[in-house]
Structures are given as C-alpha cells and as structure tokens.
Design a protein around this nucleic acid. Structure first.
Lengths: 328, 328
DNA sequence: GTGAAAGCGCTAACAT
DNA sequence: ATGTTAGCGCTTTCAC
C-alpha cells in the first residue's frame, strides 16, 4: 500500500508538503505541487481516508434512522436526505428499526462509539429523554417526528393542524362516524394526528368512536383487509382518515369489491400525495407533505452545526395542505 | 474523551490487558478482567471505533449503489440488503446515482479510498470493464444487474427468460402488436429483458415493432402519460410488457379514462409483484422477483469473502415467475 | 497471564 | 514556503 510517506520520498519533499498538496493548502510552490502531483499520478496513490478520519476525529457519516425503508413515504424522505448529505460530502448510513426499540438503541450506541458523526431521526419509539440520554452531547436532529424541541432540533410537518383540517372537512360534509388509521400510534407524529382528529370532533360537538381508531395500518394490503372488515359487515362508518395514500388505495379497492360507492357511501382521505393517489378510481384526496423543504433545511442546519457554527436549538414546523380530489 | 489508556491507568493494568478484555481474548485473569470492566462501567467508556478501524484497516461499511431509492423495486432491494448486512455487523451506505455516470464513478472512488469495504451494485451504466478498472482489486458484488460474471460476482434474476415467457404468453393469446417499456434501456438487466421480448417474437415468426419500444418509463405518472399517447390516438397496439407494476397501474388508470377495456382491448403485464398490483382494477398480471433470496445469498457470499474465505467467482441466476391475474 | 513498545497514515503546531 | 515532530487510540508482536 502506497502512503503519503512514499509520495514524499519519491518526490523529494516532506510528508507535510504532500499533505498540503492533497488538501489544497496555499503556501506550496507550484514547482513542488507539480512534482508531488506527478508522483501521485504515477503511483496511483489514494489517501487513506480512515487515517484521515482518525486524525480528524470524524467519520463524515450521518446515520438515518427509519422504521422501514420499503415504505413509500420513508423511501422518499431517505432519498431526499441522502442526496442533500452527499452533496455536502457526507455519507449516509440507513438504519431500519422495524419498530424495534432494541434496534433503535443500537444505532444510538453507534453514535456514542463515534462510528457516526450524527443521526437524523425520522421516527422513534423512545421518549425524548431516553434518546437524549443515549446520544448524550452527540449530534442528533429529528425530522418528521413531532418532538418538543427541548432536547434536540426538530423539523416536522404540522401533523395535528393538517389532520384537524382534513377531519373538519369531512365533518362539515355532514359525516359523523369517521375512522382514523395510524401506522404506529406510539410515535409522536401519529399522536399529533390523533390529537387533530379528536380536536376536530370536539370543536364540532361530535363524539369520535373509539372503535374506529385503527392502528398498525400502513400498507395497501392492510387497507384491503381493513376494508373487508368494514364493508363486509356494513358497519355504519362513513369515512376515514387513512394515514397514507397506500392504505387509501387498499380501502378504495376493497370498497369496489364490496360494491360500496366512494365518495357517495364512504369518504377517504389519504396522506402524502403519492402518485398512487392518481391511479385509483376515484382518485385519492390527500395531504401533501413537505419532504423536499424539510430535508434541505435540516441538512443545512446539520452541516452548519458540524462546522462549529453554534445554532440555537431549532424547531421548524411545516404546513401540509389538503388536496381535494375525488374520494371524499 | 476517555481512552483505553485511562482505563488502563485507573484499573492498574496495561493498555494491552484492557484491549484483551475489550476483545474477549482468553488469557486474562478473572481478577483483572473484573477490575477493568468495573472501570469501563464507571467511566462510561466506549472504544473509539475509528481508531480500531484505522488499526485494522477496515471500515465495516458496505456501499449500495442504486439509481434512486424512491422506487418501489429498489427500496425493497435496499431494505433487504441493508438488513442482511446489519445482521452481520456491517453498516450500509446508500448511494443514489440518479443514472449519472459521474455519480457512479464517485462511489467507486470511495471504494478505492477505502471509505468502503465493498460495494453492492444494483444497477449500472458503465461497462463491466470500466467498473472492474475503477474498483480494481477491491470488493464488489453485483446484484440485480445481468453482468457476465467474468469480472465480479453476480446475483440476478433471469430477466431474459422470464420476459420471454411473458411475451410468449401474450403472443399465444393471439396478440401480434405488443409494446415494451424499459426504465433505462442502457442497463444490462433491461437489455436482457429486451432480448427475451424479441426472442419470443422471433420464435413465433412475428416482427416486433420498433415504435412500440418505450424507454424511460418507470413511474405511475409515466404510465399514465404513455397510456394517454397510446389510447387517445387509438393506436393499434394490443398489449404491453410494462416493466414495472407502477407503470402497469398508470396504464390501467389511463385506459379507464380513455374507455379502453382491459384485458379485452388491451393487455398489460407488470413486473415485481408489488402490492399495487392488487389494488388496481383489473388487478395486474405480473412477474415475481426474488429479492429476499438474492440479498441473503449475496450478503452471505460477501461476508465469506471478507473473512478471507476464498470463493470462486460466482454467477447465480434466479428464476422469476409469471403470476397471471386479470390484466391480460 | 501481562506489559512494553512499535506502528498504522495522516494532520497540524511549530520552527525555520 | 517547507520540514520536523508529536500524536490521534488502538492492536499486536514480542519478551518476560
């Protein structure tokens, strides 16, 4: 393996000079620079990045914590964050927790072990306090999850408001028996949605039905199965906040099979404005998220923090928007 | 920052002994082991993993090269590979190329810079020769792409065969004007599909129509747009190998809008057996891939190679299977 | 069973 | 503008 020392020896300068050339320092004579570059070229030398990381005490690696990457929302989010990170010279390591607290804690351990320079959290089952304790003074930014912002920076959608609006929309159309689907109700973001859902009912003096709160519903298949349950028995439920466009698509398919007309007999509102919402019949009314803006701001912020620019703790909230199409 | 030296000092032993405890070596007296463990506990010491990597010359990091993670097939593949890698103690770094040769080359540079212990390639626009040259003797395994296997290990679906079968199926139903969609026709896997498509025509003595070869078609939106083009002008095309279930879903939606009956007026066969194929009306006939098997075998193989177990170069081919539903 | 010592490849004071 | 030097935290001979 050829090292910086070999280059130095062969080009008749010292290691420092080679290092300076490598790192584009000023104060290197053009003559020496050319000599060094020539030798580097000849030997096909590549600097050992681990040695560099070791010396500089940083990995240039950011972890992204995500429940499951094979999920239309999270794959978009991860894709967007990754690109932003790469543009700034950070590698990103994706960690899927599959909603396991154990796996989540393991990633925090990697952070403490300095295998990662920072973590971007997109979903969590642990309390802010525990996360803060696990990660200690190390860098962590939450994205997507509606944390308080007291322990670390957070960038998220106003899940509560936008769910409030969607529910109100349905309520105003005269529906009184509305369902609510969550992916994993133990996460802050889903809790926020539920608060919005309930608040809308309260403001309209309508009681929401506990029986119509469905948890662990996140895929097309889940939507189909739930629809079967709902429609086969002709339950009196009149509409649903589906939690995701995929669930909405499953429900719509199921309705068709059971000869339930949407929106006449049943209303559906999805989440995320995924292209699938255009492919169903009827097309899904949905809520558009702010993935692009969020990930850009967040990586900007993170990069600044790493460059030592002290930042006051941030909580930035983005407004989602309802898109009305045909399913309600 | 507390180091191995601090632990040594405080527990009254040498660095070596601490290191032995850390790495579960035999030949440490129980007494010393306990002393050391106690101090580690007290100081909340975590070993510096970069230093360890530096010393051992490996990163425990595997790169995954993927065109775009926000893609139903690739997000599944990445998810599966990541999990397998994590189980074996490897971190995975996802790199999206967005079909850019420049970005692809950059990742190979990272490999040469030893920022990565290996790369898993799921798609590529470069020739095998160039890839082999870029990555030199470093570890690289291809997955999904139908490479020759002469330069590096490959694990892939028999794209050609399965596309041949699907096309034959359509041909046997009496269709003579069949279209073919590719995502990026410059990749080996899509070339393989095309070969299968053409071969089926040849064997049946039917000419395929160049005009019905559509490239850069990969999303629901692409499917909808393509459908508009096809159906609005009542082209004489009778069916299509859609390349993905998402494209198929878009085509089906578009057919509905233009009052084209599927499968009576037009046949569609998708790819990947994604749940979306269950949510359309009619449901999509498709081809199931072998993501789980492939990723398991591949990571097994890679791990063995890293442990120095010399392996003969491998090319393992998996058979996909047609699943007939309602769209053809 | 244990410790001393060398060294991995690089960067960054510091001196010149 | 350049070289000397120390040292990052760890593992691993080697000698005892």
């Amino acid at each position: 393996m050829v090292t910086i020392y070999d280059i130095a020896r062969l080009s008749g300068v010292s290691k420092s000079t080679v290092s300076r050339v490598l790192n584009n320092h000023p104060y290197v004579s053009t003559e020496n620079r050319m000599k060094v570059e020539k030798v580097i070229e000849e030997l096909n030398y590549v600097p050992n990045s681990i040695a560099k990381q070791f010396r500089q005490k940083q990995t240039k690696c950011i972890g992204i914590l995500v429940p499951d990457i094979n999920h239309p929302y999270f794959s978009q989010l991860v894709g967007s964050i990754s690109s932003e990170c790469n543009r700034r010279g950070f590698k990103t390591v994706v960690h899927q927790t599959f909603s396991s607290k154990k796996l989540e804690r393991e990633v925090y351990t990697q952070l403490r072990n300095r295998e990662l320079d920072g973590i971007i959290l997109t979903s969590s089952l642990l309390s802010e306090e525990e996360i803060a304790e696990c990660t200690q003074k190390n860098l962590l930014v939450a994205c997507n999850e509606d944390f308080s912002g007291n322990y670390f920076d957070v960038f998220c959608l106003n899940e509560e408001n936008v769910t409030f609006e969607a529910t109100t929309y349905l309520l105003n159309k005269g529906l009184t028996k509305i369902g609510f689907c969550s992916d994993n109700i133990d996460t802050p973001s889903q809790q926020a949605r539920l608060r919005g859902f309930i608040l809308a009912h309260d403001k309209n003096g309508i009681n929401h039905t506990k029986d119509y709160l469905f948890n662990q519903i996140s895929t097309i298949e889940n939507g189909i199965t739930l629809g079967k349950r709902l429609f086969r028995n002709r339950l009196e439920i009149e509409g649903i906040i589906a939690g995701s466009d995929f669930v909405a698509a499953g429900l719509i398919k199921s309705a068709e099979i059971h000869d339930i007309k949407i929106p006449q007999d049943f209303s559906v509102i999805g989440f995320d404005n995924h292209p699938i919402s255009l492919a169903t019949t009827p097309q899904v009314s949905t809520i558009c998220n702010r993935i692009k803006d969020m990930s850009k701001d967040l990586v900007d912020h993170m990069a600044n923090k790493m460059n030592g620019l002290k930042q006051i703790p941030v909580k930035k909230i983005y407004n989602g928007k309802i898109i009305i199409r045909e399913s309600n």
